[in-house]
């Protein structure tokens, strides 16, 4: 037997090696870690109370005592921003996770049930996709009522139909793939094929997508709170803080600036880390 000659395809192997995290990724990861601390144990970063009012200290510009200034009720904006991390992060994370789970069930059932079930489930997704995600979220808030949990469910429902389509498309690709056909050809039972091949190869790319969507979910959750449908004042949620601060823009720009800035930084950090995760997994899941 002649020895195997490594053909040129293997020279491209570096393409599949995982990219190292650059400074942007490290910085983002550090920020996310800090936010996580703020969410779990805000007192570590800001000792004061986020809701204690002090009319004498109202609308103070940022200085050494009040790093981000104070709002119209004299609450320390920095403290509120730190304590707010909990709400924004949890709405975004819970909504993304719930949306992924709904979509996974929805898309997999569509891909694996017959032509009729597939048609019904996917047309339903199409119908919901015909509505703007925000409008869909508003409809859900009508049912659940205002509040943090309502907003979370609303965001989850808003992202589910789009994800369901992705899950179904990916599951169809996997279903028709050579390895599933090979498993059929070996006489492997269907449930086992679903469990071994279809599910993991569908979940993998979905998780990556989820990481990237997390940023958008945080943003949408804050938008609902801003519109008065999510977290209610005096909860120091970033979106809700903007609503409260909006009336004082001409006197006190800092009330609106810092919560929003935190929001932007959070979403950027999540996206950067998410893209990095995507790049890392590309070699594995690219067709």
């Amino acid at each position: 037997m002649t020895t195997e000659q490594v053909d040129p395809a293997s020279r491209q192997r570096p393409r599949f090696s995982r990219p190292l995290p650059g400074p942007a990724v490290l910085l983002s990861a550090a920020l996310l870690a800090l936010l996580l601390v703020a969410a779990v144990h805000p007192a570590l970063l800001a000792a004061g109370s986020p809701t204690d009012t002090d009319p004498l200290q109202a609308l103070q510009a940022p200085d050494a005592a009040h790093l981000f200034g104070t709002d119209q009720l004299g609450r320390d904006v920095f403290t509120r921003v730190v304590h707010g991390a909990r709400y924004s992060l949890s709405i975004g994370a819970a909504a993304t996770a719930a949306g992924l789970v709904i979509a996974l069930v929805w898309g997999l059932v569509a891909a694996l049930s017959g032509r009729f079930g597939d048609a019904v489930l996917m047309r339903a997704a199409d119908a919901l996709l015909a509505l703007p995600a925000l409008l869909l979220a508003l409809l859900v808030v009508l049912i659940t009522g205002k509040g943090v949990s309502g907003a979370t469910i609303a965001v989850a429902v808003g992202i589910a139909p789009g994800f369901a389509r992705v899950v179904r498309a990916q599951a169809m690709v996997v279903r028709r793939s050579g390895y599933v056909e090979s498993a059929i050809g070996l006489g492997v039972r269907r449930p086992l094929i679903v469990l071994r091949h279809v599910l993991p190869n569908t979940v993998g790319p979905l998780l990556v997508l989820g990481t990237i969507t997390l940023g958008a979910s945080i943003s949408t959750g804050a938008a609902l709170s801003y519109l008065g449908l999510g977290a209610q004042p005096p909860t120091p949620e970033w979106g809700a803080m903007l609503t409260e601060g909006q009336g004082f823009l001409h006197q006190a720009w800092w009330i609106a600036l810092f919560p929003g800035l935190m929001l932007v930084c959070t979403v950027v950090a999540v996206t950067v880390v998410g893209r990095h995760a995507q790049a890392r997994s590309e070699g594995r899941y690219a067709s």
Binding site: G178, Y179, S182, L186
Partner: peptide, 30 residues
């Protein structure tokens, strides 16, 4: 199902015929 092992396929493009997550040992192990 039990008779399927009688016929096996050698595909044109083996890359797409392997589960991308699985090492060779698992591919053949299956």
């Amino acid at each position: 199902r039990a008779r399927r092992r009688t016929i096996q396929l050698i595909p044109q493009d083996p890359l797409s015929a392997f589960d991308p997550r699985w090492p060779v040992s698992r591919v053949i192990g299956e």
